[in-house]
């Protein structure tokens, strides 16, 4: 094992143990690691955006492919930095309005065309006996779940009578779904925990054993 590999493993072990130390109580080791994490993550996104967006989508096409008009979004982007000035911060509204307007224009139809209609289609077209009784029962559960969930989130009328009854069934479906999501989330976190413990046990302790053997 080379010195670089040792450094990597020990550095990784140090940050892992520093963060886990918070489980006991807050301490300077945890705090410094947490701040380093925040800084590295910000720096990571800076590098990512710089290369994937600013260079690849603006600078390179402008100078290599002659797409000179890309200076317009560039200027709009630079105008965002006017938010740092109290007097001229309103200028950034132009860039924001451009982004918001475009996004709204795309979303208005794409949400209906790409999400609402396909989801409704998949829900309703599954009702049928072609694939047997089991599939039909499942389709009925899905249709009942979709309708009752939407009813639960309908707040324009008081949930009383039939509406209240359907909304109550909606809560049951929502609780089952949240329970399933909770179970999935917990198991995903446990997998990560196992990964970190395996690293400490095999790689880090392994490197210590390797060092003295």
């Amino acid at each position: 094992m080379s010195l670089i590999e040792y450094t990597q493993i020990w550095l990784e072990a140090f940050v892992t143990l520093s963060l886990f130390s918070f489980l006991y109580k807050d301490n300077p080791c945890y705090k410094i690691t947490e701040h380093v994490f925040a800084g590295l993550s910000a720096g990571y996104y800076f590098g990512l955006i710089w290369h994937a967006v600013i260079l690849q989508q603006m600078i390179d096409p402008m100078f290599d492919n002659g797409k000179w008009w890309l200076f317009i979004p560039g200027i709009l982007g630079v105008l965002m930095f006017s938010r740092f000035s109290q007097k001229y911060s309103w200028i950034s509204r132009l860039s924001l309005a451009f982004v918001m307007g475009n996004t709204a224009g795309i979303f208005l139809l794409s949400e209906l065309h790409g999400k609402v209609l396909p989801q409704m289609q998949s829900t309703m077209l599954s009702l049928g006996f072609e694939n047997g009784l089991g599939s039909f029962v499942l389709a009925v559960i899905v249709v009942a779940g979709v309708i009752s969930t939407l009813t639960y989130f309908y707040f324009s009328r008081e949930h009383k009578g039939l509406l209240g009854g359907v909304a109550r069934v909606g809560i049951w479906f929502i609780m089952i779904s949240f329970g399933a999501h909770f179970g999935y989330t917990v198991m995903a976190r446990i997998s990560l925990l196992i990964g970190r413990v395996q690293f400490l046990y095999f790689d880090w302790i392994g490197s210590i054993i390797n060092l003295f053997s």
Binding site: I54, M58, P73, G77, F98, V99
Partner: peptide
């Protein structure tokens, strides 16, 4: 263009 302005954001 929206991606570029978003990148600057």
């Amino acid at each position: 263009w929206v991606t570029i302005v978003g990148g600057f954001t």
